[in-house]
């Protein structure tokens, strides 16, 4: 690595010779300066939403739509329609515009609730989530074993401590002052 502790010594001393860099300068475009637009302007730029639309995908499930759109797009994703409590929150969130925190923060809340719904759904289908595997900890065991063991031991110790404290608190006899 370059020593970056004295940057003044690393001011540009290149010899302006880029022959060692294959392809240097082949994509140069002197017109591409900040004032040069990158899009290809078209006459229909100012004609609004009037292009010839592709065939419309049949709508046979619930797909939430941004209030900033006037219609559904011709094609859309058909996966995972809103459901359960998370779905109720998502529907409410979609009543707000994309410029509102009221749109995005509830969606994040819905995502977290959806995670719990996913666990419940797994259990209902006889699947016990394997958190060790799902979190990819096999890779951690392989490539970062020492730290993984230490972290796991600390987590177990803290968990055991909390559990002990809770049990002790629950079993403690109330003091009778009478």
């Amino acid at each position: 690595m370059t020593d970056e502790t004295r940057p003044e010594e690393f001011s540009d001393k290149s010899k302006k010779d880029y022959s060692h860099i294959k392809g240097w300068g082949i994509a140069r475009d002197s017109e591409n300066d900040p004032t040069y637009p990158m899009k290809n302007r078209l006459p229909e730029d100012n004609e609004g939403y009037n292009w010839e639309r592709p065939p419309l995908q049949p709508m046979d499930i619930e797909v939430l739509k941004s209030v900033e759109r006037k219609n559904y797009p011709a094609v859309f994703g058909k996966t995972l329609p809103p459901s359960g409590l998370s779905g109720v929150i998502r529907r409410a969130a979609f009543r707000k515009s994309e410029s509102s925190f009221g749109r995005w923060v509830p969606l994040i809340l819905a995502d977290r609730i959806n995670m719990v719904e996913g666990i419940v759904d797994d259990l209902k289908h006889g699947v016990v989530p394997n958190f060790f595997k799902e979190r990819g900890w096999k890779a951690e065991w392989k490539y970062n074993r020492q730290e993984f063991v230490i972290k796991s031991a600390v987590a177990v110790a803290v968990g055991a401590g909390l559990l002990s404290a809770l049990l002790w608190s629950a079993n403690k006899k109330p003091t009778n002052y009478h």
């Binding site: 899009k39 078209l42 004609e47 292009w51 797909v63 941004s66 011709a74 094609v75 859309f76 994309e98």
Partner: peptide, 26 residues
């Protein structure tokens, strides 16, 4: 995903297609 027909696709702004996403315009 891009439709190739909307005004954005015609301008080669294929990442901004207007016929692919119901949930957001941004």
């Amino acid at each position: 995903i891009s439709c190739g027909r909307c005004v954005f696709c015609k301008q080669e702004l294929y990442g901004l297609c207007h016929e692919v996403n119901a949930q957001a315009t941004a």
